[in-house]
Write a protein that binds this DNA or RNA. Structure first.
Lengths: 128, 128
DNA sequence: CTGAATCCCCTTGGATACTG
DNA sequence: CAGTATCCAAGGGGATTCAG
């Protein structure tokens, strides 16, 4: 039995920590988003993302499968065909992802502006 | 001028990518949550988190400051006193964080269950 | 008290080549 | 087509020590 430690972000078993560790990596959100409209094949995901090493994509997909967020289906054909599809749980994950995306699109400008200003300032300081 | 590339998660400049890179790290969400109720001092954050190396906490705080999510105020006193406080932007970040936390608390059980089952299965395979 | 300075490790991610 | 097998680089994070 796993303690879920509701409000305690200090605990590494904190639910939010677990989920952030999952969606915080480089490709997970992208994969979930691509699969939102229906199942896709490995190569389709690969080209849809652009610039992912096959090893890394496999890692990402296996991790998502392990956590019950998608299913991997092998179709016994020649040539091989494998499709990935979000589970109900995986589809529900789009809700918080959308929340992040919404906030991001509205506020990323401010973040980038602040960042640019801070960088400019430190650069200015260095040059005098 | 920075292109924001609204819907294109493929682009590394994608807003969602930028924000995930920020909140996806180990301590940012925790810091923002701790600061939700008002400004805190360095040591208070440190003990409030538990087990963060000072270097890492400093890194996290500086990164948040750089992105305009919090302010760092040095009070000219002996002994030194420095307080960290969320900006308006930083406070607004709590919205998507809450969305993640809500989803997590409701569904982390399923994730952990799926994970445990998958691990058990692979263990069983190895032992035969 | 608030960090800066060092040193170190491990994980994540990538490039490339190969296979059933 | 859908991966696996290797090798490798970068950096995020940590432990510890020291300083203003």
């Amino acid at each position: 039995m796993v303690t879920e430690s509701r409000g305690d972000l200090t605990d590494p078993n904190c639910p939010t920590r677990v989920v952030l560790d999952r969606i915080g990596d480089k490709w997970t959100v992208l994969v979930v988003t691509l699969l939102a409209d229906g199942p896709l094949r490995f190569t389709r995901l690969r080209t849809g993302i652009g610039g992912v090493a096959p090893k890394v994509l496999t890692q990402t997909l296996r991790a998502l499968e392990r956590d019950g967020l998608l299913t991997r289906t092998v179709h016994p054909e020649i040539p091989p065909k494998v499709t990935y599809e979000l589970t109900e749980l995986g589809r529900s994950l789009r809700t918080p992802i959308t929340a992040i995306a919404d906030w991001s699109e509205r506020n990323v400008g401010r973040i980038l502006a602040a960042r640019a200003e801070a960088d400019e300032f430190s650069t200015a300081r260095q040059s005098r």
